[in-house]
């Protein structure tokens, strides 16, 4: 499965019963939200890092977004927003986002259950000591009613290069929509999904149990992965040389180019991962996936250590890529 499902994520939206939501909360109440969360989570066994957004360097924040450890929305409230991130990056607790808390569990590959267990462990630890806003009819209450109920969003990142190339994404989207799920490009704006990476997630949060939601997303992801697999085989059967040629050309560029803009990287990265998944290129899936994050703009900037202009950034990115692959 991991040759198609890159990662799995589960997030829970929670709000403290006695504090107003984002639109009405004061600065002091936001600080109280952070204080009590940290206090309640202090006895957790594994090491965590606490990151208040205020005063953090802009590039550092962007790098956290690129690594999916914080949400772009959290950056909009940087005066009071903070994140608590477990050092293995499998759990992050965002504070003062759209809701008081967004608890995220993360795993590599297809393992929504594991991601959910991570998120539930934090939810349980907090609820032992603190009260969340809850209504017997509408479940956990959230700032926007579209998240009320379980407050749970389960999502998987899918790599679907052949379904995209064969113009099957419209059909795939329909499958998702019928089941109350959505499919979106992760990188890039608008219709074009850079890297052929998509995020499949549930929309409805009320009236279904956590398990039902997770099972629906997992089952649909498996179905899409199977479709992708069929199209991969079809493409190879049709013209194996053309298929391999496409993969090796990207590999050649990534291992030789001296300047690699992000958009171009994303296109070749997709072929690199496809080649790795099929065992055709001398690179592991793990290296591919690590490179995806490492080559994003804020990560390259961070690795360089000094502020780079766009041209130098592209040059430095190509160096990072070569070092990772050769």
């Amino acid at each position: 499965m991991s040759e198609i499902v890159v990662s799995s994520r589960v997030r829970l939206a929670r709000n403290y019963e006695d504090l107003p939501f984002r639109n009405k909360i004061t600065k002091e109440q936001s600080e109280e939200c952070v204080r009590r969360t940290l206090e309640a989570l202090r006895p957790l066994p594994q090491p965590y890092t606490f990151l208040p957004l205020k005063g953090m360097e802009a590039n550092e924040k962007k790098a956290l977004v690129e690594a999916h450890l914080i949400s772009p929305d959290l950056m909009e409230h940087e005066e009071t927003a903070a994140a608590l991130i477990r050092d293995d990056e499998k759990i992050s607790v965002l504070m003062n986002e759209e809701d008081h808390l967004r608890i995220q569990g993360f795993t590599l590959g297809e393992n929504l259950n594991d991601a959910a267990e991570c998120a539930f462990s934090i939810d349980d630890a907090l609820q032992e000591q603190l009260s969340f806003a809850f209504d017997p009819q509408w479940g956990y209450l959230t700032a926007c009613p579209t998240n009320a109920g379980t407050g749970l969003r389960a999502s998987v990142m899918l790599h679907l290069p052949m379904l995209t190339a064969q113009k099957q994404m419209g059909k795939v989207n329909q499958i998702a929509a019928k089941l109350g799920l959505t499919l979106r490009g992760i990188y890039g704006e608008g219709s074009e999904a850079q890297g052929n990476l998509y995020q499949l997630s549930n929309q409805v949060t009320l009236g279904k149990t956590e398990k039902e939601i997770i099972d629906a997303v997992a089952a649909t992801a498996r179905q899409m992965a199977e479709m992708e697999r069929i199209y991969r085989h079809k493409a190879e059967d049709k013209d194996a040389v053309a298929f391999e040629d496409q993969l090796f050309r990207s590999y050649g560029l990534l291992t030789n180019a001296r300047r690699m803009p992000i958009k171009e990287f994303m296109a070749h990265w997709s072929n690199l991962r496809l080649g790795a998944a099929l065992g055709k290129l001398p690179v592991s899936l793990k290296t591919c996936d690590a490179l995806l994050t490492a080559a994003q703009p804020a990560h390259v900037q961070k690795a360089a250590g000094t502020a780079l202009n766009d041209k130098d950034l592209d040059a430095y990115r190509s160096e990072l890529i070569r070092n990772a692959l050769v």
């Binding site: 009320a148 379980t150 009320l206």
Partner: peptide
Amino acid sequence: ELAPVITRVQGRSQHAGRRPP
């Protein structure tokens, strides 16, 4: 006022799943 809006958006009107202890 909210009840019909939530039912329309979520398609359901009764929570199922985890509850506070």
